[in-house]
Amino acid sequence: MFADKSTPALDPARIPAHVAIIMDGNGRWAKKRFLPRIAGHKAGMENVKVITKAASRMGIKVLTLYAFSTENWKRPDAEVNYLMSLPVDFFNVFMPELIAENVRVQVMGELAALPAKTRQAAAAAEADTAQNTGMILNFALNYGGRDELIEATRAIATEAAAGTLDPTAIDGDTVAAHLMTNRLGALADPDLLIRTSGEERLSNFLLWQMAYSELVFAPEYWPDFTPSVLTRAVADYQARDRRFGGIDANS
């Protein structure tokens, strides 16, 4: 992927509105440098700052970052505890820059299961940036795509059983309205998904929303994912013909 390492020019009129990133490879980045895994996570969180600014200045409207999955609890306790502390440190340190960049923070996931300090930091970040009107930085924290669909199905079934929802009226819009991305409105579905580290799978991320997303798999570990690599990924996206199941009128 990305054999050409030059930084291409982008068409400002065709910037993807919503970019989602699976930030993968922090542990392998650290191992390659004979460092503990938590050093990779720290470097990865520092890179969130860099890529957030680059995405905002590029004109992306929503940047969704897969920060912690529902499966990540299986990792060693020390690593999980460190990962839970990262949002606290990130928001405490980076908040002035987020406000200066006019970035609005949103957090989605099964937040009730997070440690109190993590929940409080996320809530404070949302409140402190609520008036910002620029790019939405949307963190997926303790998020799992299958769990999201189960919860949406359960909520829809409850409404139907209560008689407040006609089962025959259930459609795609009904499902979308019950997903965690519903706050994003028309921008809920990513135009482009990027996964770093060379792995090529979705890992239970935005399973409904990515039905027609363009996928780019970058070989760089997340701490090495630079604004130039982001630009090349967007250029790759711009070179594609998105047909959403239809055909090109010129075909």
Rank of each mutant, 00 (worst) to 15 (best):
A186F: 00
E200Y: 08
A249M: 15
A30I: 10
A157W: 04
A218T: 13
G44W: 03
A140F: 02
A235L: 11
D173W: 00
I22T: 04
N72K: 09
R195W: 02
I38F: 09
R104P: 05
D147P: 00
N81M: 09
Y212E: 12
V88E: 13
K42H: 11
K32A: 15
E214C: 12
R33K: 14
K61D: 01
A3K: 13
K53H: 09
L98K: 04
M135E: 05
R33V: 07
T174V: 12
R154N: 10
F244N: 11
D147L: 07
N132L: 04
I22D: 11
F217L: 12
G172A: 07
S85D: 14
T118R: 00
L192I: 08
K117H: 14
N182L: 00
K53Y: 01
P227E: 12
V80R: 08
I247S: 14
E101I: 00
T64W: 00
V88A: 06
R201M: 04
N142Y: 03
G163N: 13
K74I: 03
Q120H: 07
S6G: 14
G198N: 09
V105P: 03
A169D: 12
S197C: 10
A122W: 00
S56W: 01
Q238V: 02
P16M: 11
V105C: 04
F34M: 14
